[in-house]
């Protein structure tokens, strides 16, 4: 059975993004084990000479390392992902690279109608950066708008169409995880490049960039 890490992209106690991930954990229990991971408690990302990384970030990195994929549920703050999630992703790419070539599925819930659409778009660009280089499932937006009204008392999605769409996307994600494992021809060079990656240079291929 596949094992996924589901990251709640906010430190707010009340979050419909967390509710959505909990719903997925329950609903897809038969096909995958989903462990929900919080980013609350992480400090703001800060570079140091010694490249210190908080212990909690290392723990999250270890969980991701052994997982088959990652699901990130993001709200939208000011048309972008919350600083705490941005911070978490920076820690998770600072001197370590648990997300390298890791299959990622993005979900987003918002109180308004748009379902964190702009935050999701920025998150894709961030995950695609040379420091992270995750494998984001393409063409697979799941935007849950008006999220305060989206769940019933048991935390299930009210809307049949939306739950069917999510079922479909999750099945695709299982498949995408398998396919990703076959997209392995560049893994070694990616890994090597990542090990050479310098936050100070912003690149691991200085010669070519110059």
């Amino acid at each position: 059975m596949k094992k996924f890490i589901a990251i709640v992209g906010t430190n707010a106690k009340k979050s419909t993004n967390r509710t959505l991930l909990q719903y997925m954990k329950k609903r897809y229990a038969a096909s995958a084990e989903i462990e929900i991971v919080e980013v609350a408690g992480l400090p703001l990302f800060k570079k140091t000479k010694e490249m210190l990384v908080p212990q909690y970030a290392k723990e999250i990195a270890q969980k991701i390392d052994v997982a088959d994929g990652v699901i990130i549920g993001t709200p939208e703050y000011d048309h972008s992902i919350p600083a705490i999630l941005s911070s978490a992703l920076a820690w998770l790419s600072y001197g370590m690279h648990p997300l390298l070539d890791k299959p990622v599925m993005i979900t987003g819930a918002s109180y308004g109608a748009l379902g964190a659409s702009r935050a999701q778009a920025q998150l894709r660009q961030i995950l695609d950066s040379p420091e992270i280089k995750a494998r984001i499932m393409p063409s697979s937006e799941f935007l849950l708008g008006n999220s305060l009204k989206a769940f019933d008392e048991d935390g299930n999605l009210n809307d049949q169409e939306q739950s069917e769409q999510l079922d479909g996307l999750f099945k695709d994600f299982l498949l995408f995880t398998d396919i990703s494992n076959q997209l392995n021809h560049a893994n070694v060079t990616n890994e090597k490049e990542m090990n050479n990656f310098s936050w100070d240079e912003g690149s691991s291929r200085r010669e070519e960039e110059k």
Partner: peptide, 19 residues
């Protein structure tokens, strides 16, 4: 600066307080 193709979390964090 640019971290992970985006603004540093510290700057975004300030803007969150200021919004």
């Amino acid at each position: 600066p640019e971290h992970n193709h985006t603004v540093p979390a510290a700057m975004k964090n300030v803007i969150e307080w200021l919004s």
